[in-house]
Simulated scan of single mutants.
Amino acid sequence: MNPYLLPGKYIDFEDPGIAALARQLSHDAASEHALVDRCFRFVRDEIRHSADFKLNPVTCRASEVLRHRTGYCYAKSHLLAALLRANGIPTGLCYQRLSVNDDGVPYCLHGLNAVFLKAHGWYRVDARGNKPGVAAEFCPPTEKLAFPLRDPNERDLPEIWAEPLPIVVEVLERFSTYDQVLANLPDIALIS
């Protein structure tokens, strides 16, 4: 579990702002469930999704996401991992491969988290941000993610990563505006 508890370049929970927020969210949390739910709801509801709200700058590090209060799904997952790891809860990064327009090509990765809950084991949670047609919740043991798989080439990628995928970081660091990222969303080829 150690890799899922450590800070990193993008999950930088040693940042003073993240450390303070992590303490604030854990204050009086009666259980692990309550703490994870508080952190999840904060990221889902208080951090605006860059494309939904047409917001710049493009963020990648958890501390940037918190400072600017915006991020793509990937960046929001970095912040949720940072808040949970700061509170000693093992948290990883997960990805889905989804159709961008729900009708085949093009495809892109979607970022979310896996949290290790003592009562349930690894549990995926998606703090992307709700909107009409998207209603992600924290309700273990049932997963309620933002996007169901609908297309034969969509996938839930099974890996749980301790650090973000390089292709995701490359896109978030290369482009400076939300619309540039939207036009260049990261994707990976599926192995047959």
Rank of each mutant, 00 (worst) to 15 (best):
L55D: 11
W122M: 06
Q96C: 01
T142Y: 00
H78C: 13
L80P: 01
S31D: 15
P152F: 11
I11A: 04
Y178D: 13
C39R: 00
F138E: 05
T91S: 05
V43E: 07
F147I: 10
S77E: 06
Y72H: 10
M1V: 12
R174N: 11
H27S: 12
L6D: 12
D45V: 01
L98I: 14
K118M: 02
P7M: 07
F175Q: 07
R67K: 13
V100S: 09
L157Q: 10
L93A: 02
Q180M: 08
R174T: 13
A30E: 14
V134L: 11
K118Q: 12
R150S: 06
K144Y: 00
H120L: 03
F147Y: 15
G121Y: 08
L84N: 08
T177C: 06
E163P: 04
S50G: 08
H27V: 10
V58Y: 05
A81S: 15
R128A: 07
K118L: 08
P148I: 06
A146W: 01
S26E: 09
G71A: 07
N184H: 15
R97W: 07
N153C: 07
L25T: 09
K76L: 13
G88L: 04
A51C: 07
P16M: 01
L93P: 03
Y4D: 02
A146D: 09
A162H: 05
V58D: 06
I160G: 09
E137F: 08
L157A: 08
Y178P: 10
C73G: 02
F42D: 05
D102A: 15
T177N: 05
V171M: 03
L25W: 02
A127C: 15
R97F: 01
D179R: 01
V168A: 08
L165Y: 05
L79H: 04
D151E: 13
P166A: 12
R61Q: 14
Y74S: 06
P152E: 14
Y72N: 03
G121K: 08
D156C: 05
V105L: 12
E137R: 15
G88M: 04
N113A: 12
F40P: 01
P186S: 08
W122Q: 08
L145G: 12
F13G: 00
I167F: 01
R150E: 11
F147W: 12
F116T: 00
R124K: 11
K76F: 10
R174M: 10
F175R: 05
P7C: 09
Y107G: 03
I167V: 15
R67Q: 15
A135F: 11
D102K: 11
R61M: 13
L182T: 10
E159L: 07
C94T: 12
D45W: 00
N184W: 11
L83W: 02
I47L: 10
